[in-house]
Write a protein that binds this DNA or RNA. Structure first.
Length: 948
RNA sequence: AGGACUAUAGCUCAGUUGGUUAGAGCGCUACCUUGACAUGGUAGAGGUCGGCAGUUCGAAUCUGCCUAGUCCUACCA
């Protein structure tokens, strides 16, 4: 074996072997256990967040596979409608200078499919590199044939159940992408704007209470006044009560519109008069509907002003309530240009009362980055309320549990106030809506055109046109847990693996995805008794991975880390190129390059997949964002190296040697019995921690056991026996060395699969294990009967004695190379026994010249340290500096004195003694006695040295 | 506006139902190339657990208020 661990050499080839041998497939035996991967965007690449979640899923998957479950980790990718279409449109523009409209729908879709085939491999390569043990044979895509069927089926059935409807509604319109988006895709940002105060003249000679011939409305969106249909005031507002039922004459368009009273109006805000524009504001829409008003649309799909207004009733029919004429001056003007000019015109007309600064929230499209426009369009909606009810109940009654639990509140508050979901998108890439229209615009929903014809008895000579729109990406992802398993067919896989066990995902998509998955699954998937099935039993919500400063990783900040660069390393120049090349905002490149050179002056060295994974686990405390720290990664790479070298030591002393496998007496030393006992305890701990989804604690337990116990103590304790024990003891220790290591490898395999497999191949035969791979070996289980309690106490004592001697050495500056004599005295019977049994260990590990037990005779002047009652003495003659020893003793005495003070204070407190449980009091008393005795001895010793 | 979360060593974080001398890794100091490992070993320094009250015999842990920060939801034209 190499002296240092070289992950690059082994990782890729092991993955290939595992995949070729089919080890990732479900075994077909055992209780089913399944996890669905949150499908990444097919044309994207994995970032650290994916690596984090996928590593967690892989650990859980490997753990359960080794536990004997029939384990499936379902893999697949998402077509990611808007995101993918945008990528390809940009590419098309850059490479051919064409828009999608130049190509036409079919040719453009061909382009996207091509691109998907080309770039889809990136993700799967990355997943393989991470060691993800997914079932590649059943890889799925949200637009593959099976999914197409599932989506059609769901749409048609929801429509038949009146849970999907089509209508002319106000939606969030993205004027750049030319599509509707859902509420969730809108980001509200704080902006500094203005509040314009406009005078609206009263019609028919009406006057306000104060005698004015106009009222003043305040607005942040002057351009929408062209679509005003009313002015609203509060019903109890004395300033305007007399005007309710009267009219104003809307300037610029001379539209006579009513003044209405509505509780919605806040008397304190602005002037207390609100212009109502039902076709361009969500609140106004509701208010207009309440007052039986109409909708006056004044904007095009590009968010420019129309030549002629379009006027509708709330049921979508045309309205004749108003003249459709709009001022010609604004026709075709962009909304923001129109705003300027309308304000100018009001000013000219003397109708601009004032302009106040005003802070407001402006809605932006999360993909396009442009201001979203509420726009009246025909769209498809899912009626969400009825679907939400059982989905809320499932979390309330614990059928689905969020980890950590606090996310349930977030889920409830959104679900209990859920709005209908706009599912149609005016895009080309996605599942086309299975609805057809005849010439009169009548809609027919069916799985296929043929079905539509037969279902609705439409003659063959009637032309049908399929709806041009596609479905929101999240509509198909919502079917992920059952769509991937073959639904709508009643497949064996669906029966076996649904519901799945746990969903591992980020909090940012609880609404987008988790909630909708629960709603859709519970509506469509029922168990044998007809009860709705949940999609998963646990939702494990991970935090976000941020950069070293706690900033979100993003391309425009240039602080994105590619998990593969952590694994394979990358030269500084390549990293700079990667971060600054192909940027949407090239002006940032210089800053990013500078920052990158500063943070990664040496580039990034290779750490290997196992180190990356282990780092991610160690940081995975629940529900908390993670600030990425390269130093931790280095630390865990060192940990892998530690394991590697421990294995080298074990193999060096066991390969081709007698490990007791072919008979012969075997006796287990104290160290052997101790490490076996500790192994059982650690196995139990890890089982609990993994069960609680606390992979951070589990990884810490592993680290601590392997490094601080197996390597630091057990391997050291094995050396005296390997070097000079008798044959039976040597057999026992060799056997224990190799068996415990073998168990450690299995214990660690779900976390660090590659290094454990590599070492296991050589260790397993020595430990009497057979098998082609560690992947399918049984996960170690704790066996209480193997715990030797005596050994735990004895080794604790042994460690205390050795540490005491090392402490004296360290503090006294005695060269580690110098062997020293040590004596023990004043101990009890246990101390004496332990001394006799472990003399050789202490001598070896503390590097002693001699070790003996003193009787009552006065010892030579020594540096002393207490281990319980027992004194450890290092004679001072020629070794120890008196001043240094005094200093050391005083330090110890200080500690003891403080401890005595603290404890006696506590025990003198009548209330503590009478109120605290007896065992706590007893414990404190024992501690006090020990501290007092230590204090006494230390001060005696100090006196003695001083008196010399 | 409502809600959630976070605040513990120089840095990044653990701390399970209130009872420890408050832990780990990294960093830091000193010494050490000893036959597994310098990606290492040994010993050490370093914290009034954001602040103020309260409950309790006892609070990092429970309650209230405050401060700072992060996030989510909704929104006043």
């Amino acid at each position: 074996m190499e002296k240092t661990y070289q992950p690059g050499d082994i990782e890729q080839s092991w993955y290939q072997t595992w995949e070729q041998e089919g080890y990732f497939k479900p075994s077909g035996n055992g209780t089913p256990y399944s996890i669905m991967i949150p499908p990444p965007n097919v044309t994207g690449s994995l970032h650290m967040g994916h690596a984090f979640q996928d590593s967690i899923m892989d650990a859980l998957t490997r753990y359960h596979r080794m536990k004997g479950n029939n384990t499936l980790w379902q893999v697949g990718t998402d077509h990611a409608g808007i995101a993918t279409q945008m990528v390809v449109e940009r590419k098309l523009a850059a490479e051919e200078g064409k828009s999608r409209h130049d190509l036409g729908r079919d040719a453009f879709l061909d382009k996207i499919w091509e691109w998907k085939e080309h770039s889809g491999g990136t993700i799967t390569r990355q997943l393989r590199r991470l060691g993800a043990s997914v079932d590649w044979d059943h890889e799925r895509f949200t637009m593959d044939e099976g999914f197409y069927k599932a989506v059609q089926e769901v749409f048609v059935r929801l429509y038949e159940d009146d849970l999907i409807y089509r209508g002319k509604r106000l939606v969030n319109w993205d004027p750049k992408l030319h599509t509707a988006i859902s509420d969730l895709e809108v980001e509200n940002k704080d902006k500094q704007g203005s509040l314009w105060h406009f005078r609206y003249p009263l019609a028919d000679g009406s006057r306000t209470a104060e005698g004015a011939d106009h009222i003043v409305v305040a607005t942040t969106r002057p351009e929408t006044m062209l679509g005003d249909t009313a002015v609203a005031v509060h019903p109890e507002d004395e300033r305007y009560q007399n005007l309710v039922g009267k009219f104003v004459l809307l300037p610029l368009v001379n539209r006579r519109i009513p003044i209405v009273a509505d509780e919605y109006v806040d008397r304190e805000f602005g002037t207390g008069c609100v212009k109502i524009t039902p076709a361009h504001d969500f609140n106004d829409y509701d208010l207009g509907k309440r007052h039986d008003s109409v909708l006056i649309n004044i904007m095009s799909k590009d968010a420019t002003i129309l030549e002629q207004a379009q006027i509708f009733n709330f049921d979508g029919s045309q309205s004749e309530a108003f003249d459709t004429t709009l001022p010609t001056a604004y026709a075709g003007l962009d909304r923001f240009e129109a705003r300027k000019q309308i304000v100018a015109e009001f000013e000219q007309l003397g109708l601009l009362e004032k302009i106040d600064d005003h802070a407001l929230k402006v809605p932006y499209g999360d993909r396009s980055g442009v201001v979203i426009e509420p726009l009246l369009t025909d769209q498809w909606f899912v009626r969400a309320k009825p679907l939400a009810e059982p989905a809320i109940a499932a979390v309330e009654n614990g059928d689905i549990q969020f980890v950590p639990k606090q996310y349930e509140n977030m889920y409830f508050s959104w679900m209990r106030d859920i709005q209908d979901w706009c599912i149609s998108r005016q895009l080309w890439w996605g599942h086309r809506i299975p609805a057809w229209y005849d010439d009169s615009g009548k809609v027919y929903v069916a799985r296929t055109e043929a079905e539509a014809r037969s279902k609705y008895s439409i003659a063959d000579d009637v032309a049908l046109m399929q709806d041009d729109d596609v479905l929101d990406t999240w509509f198909s992802s919502a079917l992920w847990t059952f769509g991937t398993l073959g639904w709508p067919e009643a497949t064996e896989r669906l029966r076996t693996f649904h519901p799945t066990d746990v969903l591992v995902t980020g909090f940012d998509i609880i609404f987008f995805w988790v909630a909708r998955m629960i709603m859709m699954t519970m509506h469509f998937i029922k168990d044998d008794e007809g009860k709705p099935q949940v999609p998963f039993k646990y939702v494990y919500v991970t935090g976000l991975i941020r950069d070293e400063n706690g900033d979100k990783m993003s391309k425009s900040k240039g602080n994105v880390l590619d998990p593969l660069d952590m694994i394979d390393g990358i030269a500084l120049e390549d990293l700079v190129e990667k971060r600054t090349g192909n940027m949407m905002q090239p002006q940032l490149a210089e800053k990013i390059a500078k920052r990158t050179r500063k943070t990664f002056a040496e580039g990034i060295s290779a750490h290997g997949t196992d180190a990356l994974r282990f780092t991610l686990y160690s940081l995975a405390s629940t529900g908390r964002d993670i600030n990425w720290d390269m130093k931790r990664l280095e630390g865990y790479r060192n940990f892998c190296n530690k394991i590697w070298n421990a294995a080298r030591y074990v193999l060096m002393n066991t390969e081709d040697q007698d490990c007791g496998q072919s008979g012969g007496d075997v006796s287990l030393s104290l160290a052997d019995r101790w490490i076996i006992s500790r192994l059982q305890q650690v196995e139990a701990t890890i089982e609990k921690q993994v069960g609680d989804f606390r992979l951070d604690l589990a990884s810490h337990s592993l680290y601590d056991f392997i490094w601080n116990e197996y390597c630091d103590w057990y391997l050291e304790l094995s050396k005296p026996i390997i070097n000079s024990g008798d044959a039976a003891a040597q057999r026992g220790t060799r056997r224990t060395l190799v068996r415990v290591l073998e168990a450690i490898l299995r214990l660690a395999h779900p976390f660090i699969p590659f290094i454990t497999e590599e070492i296991w191949q050589r260790v397993a035969p020595l430990a009497g294990k057979e098998g082609a791979t560690i992947m399918t070996q049984a996960y170690p289980e704790s066996d209480v009967s193997k715990i030797d309690k005596l050994s735990l106490g004895d080794v604790q004592w042994l460690q205390d004695v050795i540490i005491a001697i090392r402490n004296i050495r360290g503090e006294m500056d005695i060269s580690p190379a110098k062997a020293i004599p040590v004596s023990l005295r004043h101990g009890n019977a246990d101390d004496k026994r332990r001394f006799e049994e472990n003399r050789s260990y202490i001598t070896a590990l503390a590097k002693l010249e001699s070790l003996d037990w003193l009787g009552d005779a006065e010892p030579p002047l020594s540096a002393t340290q207490l281990v319980g009652e027992m004194e450890v003495l290092v004679p001072m003659a020629g070794l120890i500096d008196v001043e240094a020893e005094l200093k050391r003793l005083n330090k110890e005495l200080d500690k003891s004195t403080k401890e005595v003070g603290r404890l006696s204070g506590k025990l003198n407190n009548e209330k503590f003694v009478s109120n605290a449980p007896a065992d706590v009091v007893a414990k404190e008393k024992a501690k006090l006695a020990e501290a007092e005795s230590a204090q006494q001895r230390l001060s005696d010793q100090i006196e003695k040295i001083k008196n010399l």
